[in-house]
């Protein structure tokens, strides 16, 4: 099964760039990437730039409305994601727990929609 691992965190709680805590976080992400790749479960994964770079769009009455900022104004923002292909939820949660962001943010794990139930 494929799962998306969504990383939500509050930038204010994130270790600051240039501190040893920041280096430890990056090393943690790197180690997690290595493990996922070595286990052959990593489908994709990206980090996102800060929420201040976000632009939202919706089409209402055929007219595109573009807005500065993220869709939801919450403290914790989507900061990045992984897609892993593993046997079950327990396996997906195990990889999610490897991510350093779990210690200061929240990781959400959701199965991807399966458009091909035959699995071939």
């Amino acid at each position: 099964m494929k799962y998306m691992i969504l990383i939500y965190n509050d930038p204010a709680l994130e270790p600051a760039y240039g501190t040893p805590a920041f280096d430890a976080m990056m090393a943690g992400f790197f180690a997690a990437n290595q493990t996922m790749a070595a286990d052959g479960v990593l489908v994709s994964g990206e980090g996102l730039q800060g929420v201040e770079t976000a632009t939202s769009l919706r089409i209402r009455g055929g007219k595109a409305e573009t807005m500065d900022g993220p869709f939801a104004t919450t403290k914790e923002h989507l900061g990045g994601y992984y897609v892993v292909d593993v046997a079950d939820l327990d396996a997906a949660l195990k990889y999610a727990a490897l991510l350093p962001a779990a210690e200061f943010g929240t990781i959400e794990v959701r199965p991807l929609m399966n458009y091909n139930p035959a699995g071939n």
């Binding site: 099964m1 799962y3 046997a87 079950d88 939820l89 327990d90 997906a92 959701r110 199965p111």
Partner: peptide, 14 residues
């Protein structure tokens, strides 16, 4: 069913 919660004895570490 949808989230793939396993029907299994947990791994020894869990």
């Amino acid at each position: 069913a949808a989230a793939g919660i396993p029907f299994a004895i947990p791994a020894p570490e869990d």
